[in-house]
C-alpha cells in the first residue's frame, strides 16, 4: 500500500523539482522577462487534480524554497503561492469540469493573482518594481497551459495504469 503510494508520489515530486530547476536556468536577457512560471503551473495542476495530497502545505514549502533560491524576502513566494493554490484547491471541482479554453482562462486569472501578490509584497517592502514586466510570465504561462496539462495528464494516466 505504502509502496503504491510512493510510486504515485514520485512523478509529482519529480515534476516539481524539474520545475524548480527550470525556474533557475540562466536565460538570455531578451527572453528572461518572459520565462513562464513553471513552478506555479505545476502546482496549479497537482492542486487541481489531487487537492487532498497537494495543496497549500506543499505550495508553502515550495514557495520557501523559491524564496531561498531567488534570494527574495523569505515568505514572499510562499505567501503568493499559498494563496494561489488555496483558490485553486477551493474551486478544484469546478475547474476540473471546465473545457480547456475556460480552464486556460482561469489559469490566466490565477497566474495574474500570483504575480500581483508578488508585485504587491515588493511594493510594501519598498523594493523598486515596474508593473508592466510582471505580465510576461503570466502570458507565456497561460499560453503553455494547454500543452502542459496534456503532458501532466499523460503522466498521471501512465502512473495510474501501471500501479
Amino acid at each position: 500500500m505504502s509502496k503504491d503510494r510512493s510510486a504515485r508520489r514520485l512523478p509529482v515530486v519529480f515534476s516539481i523539482v524539474v520545475a524548480l530547476m527550470l525556474s533557475m536556468v540562466p536565460l538570455p536577457d531578451v527572453i528572461d522577462p518572459y520565462r513562464p512560471d513553471w513552478v506555479a503551473l505545476t502546482l496549479i495542476y497537482w492542486a487541481m487534480t489531487l487537492p487532498r495530497s497537494y495543496s497549500v502545505g506543499t505550495a508553502w514549502v515550495v514557495g520557501i524554497v523559491l524564496d531561498i533560491a531567488h534570494g527574495t524576502l523569505l515568505g514572499q513566494y510562499a505567501l503568493a503561492m499559498c494563496f494561489m493554490i488555496y483558490v485553486t484547491a477551493k474551486f478544484h471541482l469546478q475547474l476540473r469540469v471546465f473545457p480547456l479554453s475556460q480552464m486556460t482562462a482561469t489559469v490566466f486569472a490565477l497566474l495574474s493573482l500570483y504575480q500581483f501578490l508578488l508585485f504587491w509584497i515588493n511594493g510594501v517592502a519598498g523594493l523598486h518594481t515596474e508593473a508592466v514586466s510582471y505580465w510576461g510570465p503570466v502570458l507565456t504561462g497561460t499560453a503553455l497551459w494547454p500543452l502542459l496539462s496534456t503532458i501532466f495528464g499523460g503522466i498521471r494516466y501512465r502512473v495510474r495504469a501501471s500501479s
Partner: peptide
Amino acid sequence: HRAPSGPALGLRFLLLACLSILLLVID
C-alpha cells in the same frame, strides 16, 4: 480523491499565510 474539507483547507491556508507574513516582517 475526495474533496478536501472546506474549513480544514481554509484554516491551513490562514495559518500558513500568517506564518509567511510573520517571516516577511522578520526577514
